[in-house]
Design a binder for these strands. Structure first.
Lengths: 136, 136
DNA sequence: ATACATGCAAACACTTTGCAGCACA
DNA sequence: TGTGCTGCAAAGTGTTTGCATGTAT
């Protein structure tokens, strides 16, 4: 982090992510911001999401097969995407995803980051008739 | 799997993936095929990689932050991408990535798939001077 | 004053899709 | 002989970047 300038836009992005508890994608954050502040550009939102996650103020959740999302909750936890409603939820797993970080594995790899994500069916969608989904 | 037709193109894609041991991206598979068989289209390669992984003949490795890759080795194992040389390697972890699959977690999620990937520095790149990389 | 940040639009990387024609079972 | 597959090109999705201008320190 070599930049330290506090801009109105950066503050708005941080505030917006903190107000969204549904693991929004970068574009969802942009859309919400754009509704209130139409002059803020998509590039600025993307750049600030990157800055804020790098500086540890928000969590950047890298999702395979789909847009990455952002989480105001920076604590160590995992995520699951529902196959039906496509929403992302927190999930608790019986191990830390970070146990292996900054360790060297038997083959000589230095592990710097561990990414664990799940796919499944959320409680609201399970039991719903084929093709249906939770309140879409 | 409802399609069962064996085409020359499908066979070429399977053979090519089996000959590549470096976890190629779809585009890398296409590039190699295109060198030998210029008439095979990118779409066909992508469609067959999808088909072959769905039918269990190859492994589709979903990588966050970059192109997905394919693995001739369909056994249960994890992958790590080197931050410096960007290559993908197999890695062994002290747990099965599939232990949680087809289980219901305490919050009522049915877990269908578990994706575990690592980022780090490969043995060839560690110890190399800043900015350097393994034989680039 | 000046280096960092912004807005815009275009470019980028990766993948999917519509469609007309082809070929495997 | 028909439906599944192919090649082509275009579109789709998500994200980054070059550049001129603006602004926080």
């Amino acid at each position: 982090m070599d930049s330290t300038r506090n801009t109105i836009q950066r503050d708005i992005v941080l505030t917006m992510v903190r107000s969204m508890t549904d693991h929004p994608s970068a574009d969802a954050v942009y859309a919400k911001i754009h509704g209130e502040y139409p002059s803020i550009s998509r590039a600025t939102v993307y750049r600030n999401l990157e800055y804020l996650s790098r500086s540890g103020q928000i969590l950047h959740v890298e999702m395979p097969n789909g847009a990455d999302c952002y989480d105001f909750n920076t604590s160590d936890h995992c995520h699951i995407r529902c196959e039906k409603c496509k929403k992302v939820f927190d999930i608790s797993v019986p191990f830390s995803t970070r146990i292996l970080e900054n360790k060297t594995d038997p083959d000589g790899f230095l592990i710097t980051k561990c990414n664990v994500t799940f796919t499944g069916i959320c409680p609201a969608c399970s039991g719903v008739s084929e093709g249906g989904a939770c309140n879409e």
